[in-house]
Design a protein around this nucleic acid. Sequence first.
DNA 1: GGTGGATTACCATTGAGCGGGAATCCAGAG
DNA 2: CTCTGGATTCCCGCTCAATGGTAATCCACC
Lengths: 261, 261
Amino acid sequence: MANSASGESIIGRFVKIVSAFDDSHPSMSVAELGRRTGLPVTTAYRLVNDLLLERLLDREPDGNVHIGTRMWELVSRGSKMVGLREAALPFMEDVQAVVQHSTTLGILDSDEVLYIERIGSHSTIVDITKIAGRLPLHATSSGLVLLANATPEYQESALARPLAKFTETTLTDPPQLRRHLAEIRQRGYAVMPGVIVKESSGIAVPVYGPDNTVVAALSVVVPRNEENVPARVPVLMASARGISRALGWRGELKGALRQSR
Amino acid sequence: MANSASGESIIGRFVKIVSAFDDSHPSMSVAELGRRTGLPVTTAYRLVNDLLLERLLDREPDGNVHIGTRMWELVSRGSKMVGLREAALPFMEDVQAVVQHSTTLGILDSDEVLYIERIGSHSTIVDITKIAGRLPLHATSSGLVLLANATPEYQESALARPLAKFTETTLTDPPQLRRHLAEIRQRGYAVMPGVIVKESSGIAVPVYGPDNTVVAALSVVVPRNEENVPARVPVLMASARGISRALGWRGELKGALRQSR
DNA sequence: GGTGGATTACCATTGAGCGGGAATCCAGAG
DNA sequence: CTCTGGATTCCCGCTCAATGGTAATCCACC
């Protein structure tokens, strides 16, 4: 599929173009866009023009282009992320009001945690999560909660991959991780002290969807030296239940299982 | 541009496909997607497959497709909307905590207000604004604030368009609207009683960017029968200044102008 | 087992996309 | 003022990916 010499479809190039923009490159000239994407100059200009016509990209007065308002609008209107985010936000604010550091909501996507919402104190400490940012599963509390509730096959394939070690406390040994996952499943939450950044700890709990599957992880990041970290767990759990209910989740997992037997 | 008999480019069809999804149609079968977009069946299937390969669409277990997680991710990561939203959210929460009804942030796009963020009480009253939703400029407080701060040419072209009348209080007469816009510009806020829905009033104030231009409107919706609506204005203004500062706005508009003379 | 919808497979046709090359525009340096 | 390097637009012939009919297949439900 593709007219191009390099054998890519337009869709593929579209993805390249959109991917070229991020926090540090929110807008750029078409020439630079061409360079970043590796597209032939002429092709880049033609493609960008097409996208400008449909308002998927917007042109600024200085000629630079950036992701179009229309694009954001269409995707936001159609995507299920927004619904999840809206359901979660009020509860996340409650958590944030009590815990005071940084509260995030993440989902499992392509063997990583994808953070779809984050609220933090204005003067946020060390915290590398960003909205629409990704982090590895094994090195985050959110990731471990999501992984612990995934299918066994998925877990194994995730553990089979090479696991990066960020600090001394990062678990990278599959058997050890397996035990940890079992523990998380049983306890219902994950605590990770200084796994990515030494100075902070993450705590995460699962959020359920209507069909009783885990659809997201709610988590907070707190300074590692805080005295009683597990004391934060109940707030998180209560809020996660609130989000789950708002998503259409009904009743208790264990209860439902017992009844069905 | 386009191989298609109908003379559309792939980009155009891509837009059609993405547009087919919204709140009430978050996912659908490929066949239905084809019908909604008016694309030939075969073409719809081929296109959808391409999009699935790039993960711009996701397939559900039942075969239905929906906007892909990757798509949301790419757009959110690159779009400037997210930055604006993040800057505004903490201040919006403050407003919401005090005013207690519904707080929105809207921008001017294609002769309409596009709402990019909204927080509301769980039991929200009558309020038709949605995230990524649109409303006409002349019938919303946000819209009037944005219009009042646009260029004169833009204002005239906006007033030249036919203006829908939603309730008795909707202003549709251009000269009357012109006076109202001048008033809003001078006062620095807009109050609109029951302009779209009879039971509620909107109040809006401008949010400034680094270059002193109005980039968004912050607004609240309150029940119309509330005694002292303008009493809400100071909170809004203070918060809007906070958002403006977070966006890089410096100092006072009038002061800056005086100095430059 | 029959019916209607969704989905996949096949395939001849063709014009939209492609991209190299050159001309033009523009800003900042000298 | 010219020079220079980058960004942008224009031009144009080639070609194969995209197109969209038709038909076969799958599947759920009555």
